[in-house]
Amino acid sequence: MESIPVEHGLILAAILFSIGLIGVLTRRNIVFVLMSLEIMLNAGGLAFIVGASRWGHAEGQIMFLMILTLAAAEVAVGLGLIIQMFRRYKTVDINVLSEMKG
């Protein structure tokens, strides 16, 4: 089978991570911020899979499974918070959360 340079896989993960970072920093819609966080977590998982493929070990895939679990739990809690926020403020703008009063 042909070979792929390992740095290409890692650079792809870095590009996806940077795009996710731009999304988190730029967007004001909280749903898009959560989606960008998903992109960043996925990029981390991609780096682990590239590592697993490089060394021929299954441990990288196990770390990917842990990231998958973490992402699922994080999304459940984040979406619950979004629903609660929308119920209180009737908007998805994160700037309305600038004052944290009980």
Binding site: M1, S3, I4, P5, V6, E7, G9, L10, I11, A14, F17, S18, V50, S53, R54, G56
Partner: peptide, 15 residues
Amino acid sequence: LVNVMSQIDHELIPA
């Protein structure tokens, strides 16, 4: 990140 990673020059043979 690209600067650090381009110093790695391993070939990856997907197994």
